[in-house]
Amino acid sequence: MLGEILLWLAAIGGVVCMVLVIVAFAANITLMMFRTGSMAPTIPAGSVAVVQSVAASEVGVGDIVTVDREGDLPVTHRITSISPGAVDEERVITMRGDANAADDASPYVVRTVRVVLFSVPGVATAIVAMGDPVVLGGLTIGATALVVWAFWPRSPKALRARSEATRNEATEAER
């Protein structure tokens, strides 16, 4: 009974994961992990944010966005000003971290940005830990054990007892 419950929970979890991957792929959604506190207290260090890639023309002042920087890590800050770029799809945005006293040193010329949909504080360490070989090995061994247990041949006596119990339940239901 417990094994069947665990198998159902694993199956449901697998389906949920597959649906989330499809939705994330279709909607250009990714995760961003925050190492610094430049966006605190809104997004403290150690948080994970769900971000969606959008055209720069779709964001406004006050939005929290992630922009890519050539040869450097991306930066996620709040937009303080927006002006048109050299072409229609381009924008020049100025940003500042909520914990910072001044705007970033130079504006960013962008065509697309990743807007922060929401964030969850404190889960970055758990996500990073999931990439640890020991954790991955443990999860793999656990999943393997569950699958082996589920499909391991049962003794003929246990199969007969289960079959008889099922027949008895069906007979009771017919009465």
Rank of each mutant, 00 (worst) to 15 (best):
V65H: 01
A26N: 08
V15Y: 02
T76C: 05
I29A: 04
L31E: 01
T36C: 07
E58C: 05
D72K: 13
A27S: 13
V67I: 14
L73T: 10
T80Y: 14
A24M: 05
T36Q: 02
G60C: 06
D68H: 15
D72Y: 14
S38K: 04
V65Y: 03
A49L: 06
S83C: 11
C17L: 12
R96N: 12
S81V: 10
L31A: 06
G97C: 05
G60K: 15
L73R: 13
L31N: 07
R91N: 13
I29D: 01
I93V: 13
F25N: 06
R91H: 13
V92R: 10
V16T: 12
V65W: 03
R91F: 13
V50A: 05
I22F: 07
V50T: 12
T66I: 07
E58Y: 04
G85H: 07
V16G: 03
D63A: 07
P74Y: 12
I93F: 08
I43L: 01
D72C: 09
P84S: 12
V51A: 02
A86Y: 09
G62L: 09
A26R: 09
C17F: 10
G60M: 09
A56Q: 08
V54M: 11
H77E: 04
V59W: 03
D72Q: 14
L73E: 14
D88K: 10
S57D: 15
A24F: 02
P41I: 07
M95L: 04
P44Q: 07
F34C: 05
L73S: 13
G62A: 09
L20P: 00
V21I: 06
Q52E: 06
G97E: 02
M18S: 04
P84E: 11
A55W: 13
P74S: 12
G85L: 12
E70H: 12
A40C: 05
F34T: 04
L31V: 06
M32G: 14
G37Q: 00
P44K: 03
R96I: 12
G37H: 04
Q52L: 01
D63C: 03
S47M: 10
L73V: 10
A56W: 11
D72H: 14
V61T: 15
P41S: 12
M18H: 02
T80F: 09
N28W: 06
V19H: 01
V51W: 00
V61C: 11
D88N: 14
P41G: 10
S83Q: 15
P74H: 11
V87P: 09
I82T: 11
A45W: 04
V21R: 01
M32R: 09
T94E: 15
M39N: 00
L31W: 02
S38W: 00
A55G: 15
I64M: 00
A86W: 07
R91L: 12
S57P: 11
V23W: 05
T80D: 12
V50K: 02
L20D: 04
A49Q: 06
I93D: 09
I22Q: 03
M39S: 01
A26Y: 08
E70L: 10
T66C: 11
P41W: 04
